[in-house]
């Protein structure tokens, strides 16, 4: 299973290195959302600065759907998904590989967007370790559910339009926990242990559930 996961992960990384589609689309989109927030709400006030973590994760939740949607739209394009489904390998391994690639793309996007976020919202990073943990666990959480639903949505007539509708309500716990842990890292919140635990539980639950059900999603009609 891990061997399959590694092969799929390497494949997705190679595609991303050549095209840079997922990361650049998610990055530009998240910057746009941050700019739109600035117009919609006057963000340079002390109260708004305390809510900065919320803005960041909202931008990121929407931008993330772009990268996640591409994950399986890519496989559909040239019938590669059929080849994946027919390959005599474990479906859970394919899921894990896809999910690891998506989590890495989301994490990289966040790291690149972080300096802009710090400049735009005038925040200071108080706890770098907590911030890294928050970004990593949050990326895994979004990738865990997003990869599964990206595969589900790719099978429909609506394609990408259905992904946010399925994915955002389920990611509510991950979103709240990510905002709270990032907020803690920026020195705007206390008591993060519950939220870190919740993120870890969320990651474990959805990774396990997705590995188990992915064979049904992948099978070709």
């Amino acid at each position: 299973m891990l061997q399959t996961a590694r092969a799929v992960l390497e494949k997705d990384f190679r595609i991303e290195l050549r095209t840079r589609d997922a990361i650049s689309a998610a990055l530009v989109f998240s910057i746009l959302v941050l700019v739109v927030f600035n117009f919609a709400l006057d963000v340079n006030t002390p109260e708004m600065r305390r809510l900065a973590a919320g803005f960041f994760w909202v931008a990121f939740a929407f931008a993330g759907t772009l990268a996640l949607d591409r994950s399986f739209a890519l496989e559909k394009e040239s019938g590669a998904g059929r080849a994946l489904a027919l390959a005599p390998v474990d479906a859970g391994g394919i899921y894990l590989g896809k999910c690891a690639a998506n989590a890495a793309f989301l994490f990289i996007t966040q790291l690149v967007a972080l300096p802009l976020f710090v400049i735009f919202f005038d925040v200071s990073i108080q706890r770098a370790g907590a911030l890294a943990a928050s970004f990593a666990l949050g990326s895994i959480a979004f990738a865990a559910v997003g990869t599964l639903f990206s595969a589900v949505a790719a099978n429909t007539r609506m394609r990408g339009l259905l992904l946010p509708i399925l994915f955002l309500p389920l990611s509510v716990p991950a979103l709240i926990a990510s905002v709270e842990t990032t907020s803690f890292a920026l020195g705007n919140a206390e008591g993060p242990s519950f939220w870190f635990t919740l993120l870890v539980v969320y990651d474990v639950v959805f990774l396990t559930a997705s590995v188990l059900v992915f064979e049904y999603v992948l099978e070709e009609s």
């Binding site: 389920l170 716990p173 926990a177 539980v201 959805f206 559930a209 997705s210 059900v213």
Partner: peptide, 17 residues
């Protein structure tokens, strides 16, 4: 698949909120 994952999410949403 959605019916199963959606319901698994319920306790997590509840505790988070």
């Amino acid at each position: 698949v959605v019916g199963i994952t959606g319901f698994i999410d319920v306790p997590l949403v509840y505790f988070a909120i």
